[in-house]
Simulated scan of single mutants.
Amino acid sequence: MVTEEMATTPKKKADLKVVIIGDMSVGKSTLIQRYLSGKFQDTLSQTIGAAFFLKQWGPYNIAIWDTAGEEKFSGLSSFYCRNARAAIMAYDISERESFDSLYARHLPLLQQGAEEDCLVIAVGTKLDLVTPNTREVTNEEGEKFAYDANPSRFQDGTRTDLRIPFYETSSVTGENVDNVFTYIFKTLLPLDPEGNPIEPNAARKRSPDVVDLENPSNAGNAGKSSKESERLPPQGKKAGCC
């Protein structure tokens, strides 16, 4: 079985950079914390700039960046998306505006800095609060966004084997949270049942300056190396739920 434990001896470079972007208060940080800790945390404060996490996937180090959702931080968010090979684009299922802003603001920002073939995962949040009366974004709309945001994987018709990268999640119950990250890792850094790389050179596809684990400032964050549970937002600010 593949284990996903914290790296005890981090390599100098991360093998994969993942960013999570979306409007303020859609639950980006709680999604990450639910995945990393297996618990729901509802007392996280607002993310200022970005926060950095390290996750182990087999022999690989994964750098996960949580970005601020406020529009005034748009320039920073674009900067933190630099060289990302995967992006979780999050929206509140019960808040139409947060979904529309993925098209209007966040996807263009991602495209400015991410890798050309960046894998985009559309993630609806707060599923536990959704009722027929409060739902403002349908499953079909979420799937269509994921399809539109991944033209190199779906629109040319050559990758019919891939599941559409779309999930509706709940950080409270944990529904589909693990599936979001597992989808990313299995797609970009596949492992065999023993946890060995299926594509030994997969990590080499990354840009050489994705993130220096000994000096995360190279990827836009002033600070020292981070472990899975450590957060390193700029200017010493605590990052959080937004």
Rank of each mutant, 00 (worst) to 15 (best):
Q112P: 03
I93H: 01
C81L: 02
R96V: 03
K126V: 05
A202E: 03
I32L: 15
E194I: 01
I64H: 05
K72Y: 03
E194D: 15
D192Q: 05
T160M: 11
S207R: 15
G220H: 08
F185K: 01
A149M: 05
A104C: 09
S101E: 12
E70I: 07
P190C: 06
A51H: 08
L191W: 02
R159G: 03
G240S: 13
E71A: 12
E116N: 12
N176M: 00
G58L: 04
T187N: 10
T67Q: 05
G69R: 01
Q235F: 13
F154R: 04
R82W: 05
D178I: 09
V180S: 00
L213Y: 09
L54W: 02
M24T: 14
F40W: 12
A84W: 07
T3V: 10
T187R: 07
T173N: 11
A104M: 11
I21F: 03
K17P: 05
R105A: 10
L110D: 05
K11A: 10
V177F: 00
I164M: 09
K205M: 12
P59V: 06
S101A: 14
S94H: 00
G27Y: 06
S229I: 12
S171R: 07
R85W: 04
S37M: 10
K144E: 14
V18K: 00
T182K: 13
R159I: 03
G220V: 08
D15I: 04
V19D: 01
T125L: 13
I20L: 14
P59N: 08
Q56C: 11
S94L: 04
G124K: 01
K13L: 14
F53G: 06
I62A: 03
Q41D: 15
D42N: 14
V137N: 00
S74Y: 07
N215V: 11
F154G: 02
R153S: 07
G220K: 05
I198V: 15
Y183E: 02
L213M: 15
I164A: 02
G157Q: 07
K28S: 09
L16W: 03
S37I: 10
F52H: 13
E143T: 01
D66V: 06
S77F: 01
G69L: 06
D100S: 12
D117N: 15
D15V: 04
N133T: 14
K238S: 15
I21G: 02
L232I: 15
D178C: 08
Q155P: 03
N221D: 09
V18E: 00
Q112N: 12
K55A: 14
Y60N: 05
R82T: 13
E140V: 07
R34V: 08
G58N: 03
S78C: 13
F166C: 07
K11V: 09
E4D: 05
